[in-house]
């Protein structure tokens, strides 16, 4: 195994402990607690009021725009990382290129803002 993968062994152990901890705690809970479900107990809790309708409802399309904007700026962030790693080497050329890249995306944000899509209704 290379040193590179050896350093990821820590990540693997961390992830394994996290999964095992959740599994043990939940497993122990279900092992110890009595299980006597009734129709009233399994009903979704709505502050003491009986829930009305289906638990899945159609969401507003506005939320989709927020999700899509999140994707776009996530992709933008991904492109910024390699640039930031080699910032000094690229110099002003890199700075101008990245400024153009971000400016074009900010245009989209400004458009969405202007059209009132950023208001959380």
């Amino acid at each position: 195994m290379s040193d590179f993968l050896r350093s990821y062994l820590t990540v693997a152990i961390f992830g394994g402990v996290a999964v095992a901890l959740v599994g043990v705690l939940l497993g122990l809970g279900s092992f110890l607690r009595p299980s006597r479900p009734t129709a009233t107990k399994t009903m979704a809790y709505e502050s003491g009021v009986d829930p009305v309708g289906d638990m899945w409802s159609q969401s507003n399309i506005r939320y989709y725009v927020f999700a899509l904007m999140f994707v776009l700026f996530d992709v933008e962030a991904v492109f910024i990382f390699p640039w930031a790693m080699r910032l000094e080497t690229y110099g002003y050329f890199g700075l101008v290129e990245m400024a153009i890249f971000i400016f074009i995306l900010v245009l989209g944000l400004a458009y969405a803002w202007r059209k009132g899509m950023l208001k959380w209704v």
Binding site: L72, V75, E76, I100, F101, I102, I104, L105, Y111
Partner: peptide
């Protein structure tokens, strides 16, 4: 960036 702008 133009592609992402178009999507938005």
């Amino acid at each position: 960036s133009v592609l992402l702008l178009a999507a938005l």
